[in-house]
């Protein structure tokens, strides 16, 4: 019984601390000084360096999804609807969520480990005593970079995933690229693309803020760094699903599904 109480207490204090950390972000990000150079560097590190992994997983996702869907559609005699199903699945749900999960694994853990290591080796303190606001320099720039880079990476992942779907169709059948693109464009409408893209901003924000929170508050030496990286991935992945659930409910209420 006491153990349960401690767990609830930990849960609420952790939730409170994350909320405070997030509030601090909104308090700091509008105030000068602006760390543009560091922000651009983070966009390069977080965005550009994630491109190969995101593109590869996107491609495999499209290819495998097509190959898995095909037998079912063939059994119902609607094989011709394969491009429609693949494109809707990728753009509305699988593309954003899988990309965000891969992103959380790669970037969330790397931010958690980097800031955690900086914390335990006193680099964050060194930044503070040299008159630099470490929250602004390290956290605000990274959270902005993850928030803005994940939608871009998702769009790329969707495009590569759709190309994977095209190759998947052509493994067992024949369809020209023109016809495939035409089918996709006839199926997908703005109300599919816009909510799916908007939610990726929230996914990116969640990955950034959780990675930074875990790293920035890292304790207990190198063991704490590993724990920060690990819990950053677990918590941000969980948040991605929770945000997805909320967004789906909202779009459903708005009649966009």
């Amino acid at each position: 019984m006491q153990g349960k109480e401690v767990k609830w207490k930990t849960f609420f204090s952790e939730t409170g601390a994350i909320s405070q950390f997030t509030g601090w972000f909104f308090h700091e990000f509008l105030r000068p000084r602006y760390e543009f150079r560091e922000f651009l560097r983070q966009c390069f590190v977080i965005g550009y360096k994630s491109l190969p992994l995101i593109a590869l997983t996107g491609f495999i996702m499209g290819l495998v999804l097509t190959m898995q869907l095909r037998p079912t559609l063939v059994s119902y005699g609607v094989e011709a609807r394969l491009p429609d199903m693949v494109s809707l699945s990728i753009i509305r749900e699988i593309g954003p969520v899988i990309t965000a999960l891969i992103f959380a694994g790669k970037i969330g853990s790397s931010i958690g480990a980097e800031l955690g290591s900086m914390r335990v080796t006193e680099q964050i303190d060194a930044m503070e005593v040299s008159g630099t606001n470490p929250y602004k320099f390290l956290v605000v720039t990274r959270v902005w970079a993850t928030t803005l880079m994940l939608p871009v990476l998702t769009i790329l992942s969707d495009a590569v995933g759709l190309y994977g779907g095209y190759l998947g169709i052509n493994i067992r059948g024949v369809m020209s690229l023109d016809l495939y693109i035409n089918e996709v464009l006839n199926t997908v409408v703005f109300s599919d693309v816009i909510p799916a893209t908007i939610k990726t901003f929230f996914f990116g924000f969640a990955v950034g803020i959780i990675g930074c929170y875990k790293g920035y508050n890292s304790k207990k030496g190198t063991e704490g760094v590993g724990r920060s990286a690990n819990s950053a991935v677990v918590l941000s992945s969980l948040l991605i699903f929770i945000i997805d659930l909320i967004v789906v409910q909202i779009t459903d209420l708005m009649g966009l599904n």
Binding site: S117, M118, T121, E122, Q123, D125, A126, M127, V129, S130, G131, N133
Partner: peptide, 22 residues
């Protein structure tokens, strides 16, 4: 905060762990 930043420019701090930005 600004005042503290200003005074910190006049104080150097050598950390036990060196705290070099790796």
């Amino acid at each position: 905060h600004d005042g503290l930043d200003h005074i910190r420019m006049r104080i150097g701090f050598l950390f036990q762990s060196n705290a070099l930005y790796d």
